[in-house]
Simulated scan of single mutants.
Amino acid sequence: MTKKHKKELSPDQTEELLEVLKERFEKNMKRHEGFEWSEIQTKLEANPEKLWSLHEMESTEGEPDVVGYDKDQDAYIFYDCAAESPKGRRSVCYDRAALESRKKYKPENSAMDMAASMGIEILTEEQYRGLQEIGQFDRKTSSWVQTPADIRERGGAIFCDRRYDHVFVYHNGAESYYAARGFRGSLKV
């Protein structure tokens, strides 16, 4: 009988993570003007599984931070705000089908599987472009983004980066992986 992994942090881990998130929130007010940390912390404390996901984002060097608020869902939106694609999520192909299609030199994981195991979603192209409006990200790395089904059905996947002060969208075989390509995630709390 396998033991189910509990997606909950210890009280010490919770306290440490909340302190890190609060400090980042206060240092980067331009990302979330008009928001109050106390309201966000209350939401986080009421959602231990979401806190666990934010811990996963933090432990893979994503530097999650609040970037918006969804009024319809009454939820704060967190994105990975690390300057470059998170170090702990690089060298991954796009999804499980791409991983299984590789005959040799398989990466350890895929972006879509990794995101699912963390309880987050990979940014869409639109979300990625929105992130680039509040800062400059991926100037040396690139990040997989959610790929439209018609592209994926043909074996491709898309990724984005920022070069020459512009955001670019590119394509690659979904089975490809590079040391400088990872993915950024989003989470609603």
Rank of each mutant, 00 (worst) to 15 (best):
4 K>A: 14
5 H>K: 13
5 H>M: 15
5 H>P: 06
6 K>N: 09
9 L>I: 01
10 S>T: 10
12 D>E: 10
12 D>R: 11
16 E>I: 07
16 E>C: 08
17 L>R: 02
17 L>D: 01
17 L>N: 02
22 K>N: 03
24 R>P: 03
24 R>S: 12
25 F>R: 01
27 K>R: 11
28 N>A: 11
31 R>E: 10
34 G>H: 06
35 F>H: 03
43 K>W: 00
43 K>Q: 01
43 K>I: 00
44 L>P: 00
48 P>Q: 02
50 K>N: 02
51 L>V: 00
56 E>V: 05
58 E>A: 11
60 T>G: 01
63 E>Y: 06
64 P>D: 06
66 V>F: 06
67 V>L: 10
68 G>N: 04
68 G>Q: 05
69 Y>F: 13
71 K>F: 09
76 Y>V: 00
76 Y>L: 01
78 F>M: 02
78 F>D: 02
85 S>E: 05
87 K>Y: 14
90 R>N: 06
93 C>L: 06
93 C>R: 03
94 Y>E: 05
94 Y>M: 07
97 A>N: 04
98 A>P: 01
103 K>C: 03
104 K>P: 00
104 K>G: 06
109 N>E: 11
112 M>I: 13
112 M>A: 07
114 M>L: 11
116 A>E: 15
122 I>V: 14
122 I>D: 04
128 Y>G: 04
128 Y>F: 11
130 G>T: 07
132 Q>R: 06
133 E>W: 13
135 G>Y: 12
135 G>S: 10
137 F>Q: 04
138 D>H: 09
138 D>G: 05
139 R>V: 09
139 R>K: 09
144 W>D: 01
144 W>Q: 03
144 W>P: 01
146 Q>N: 15
150 D>R: 11
150 D>C: 13
151 I>R: 05
152 R>S: 12
153 E>I: 04
154 R>L: 12
159 F>P: 00
182 G>W: 03
182 G>H: 03
183 F>K: 02
185 G>D: 10
188 K>E: 09
189 V>A: 08
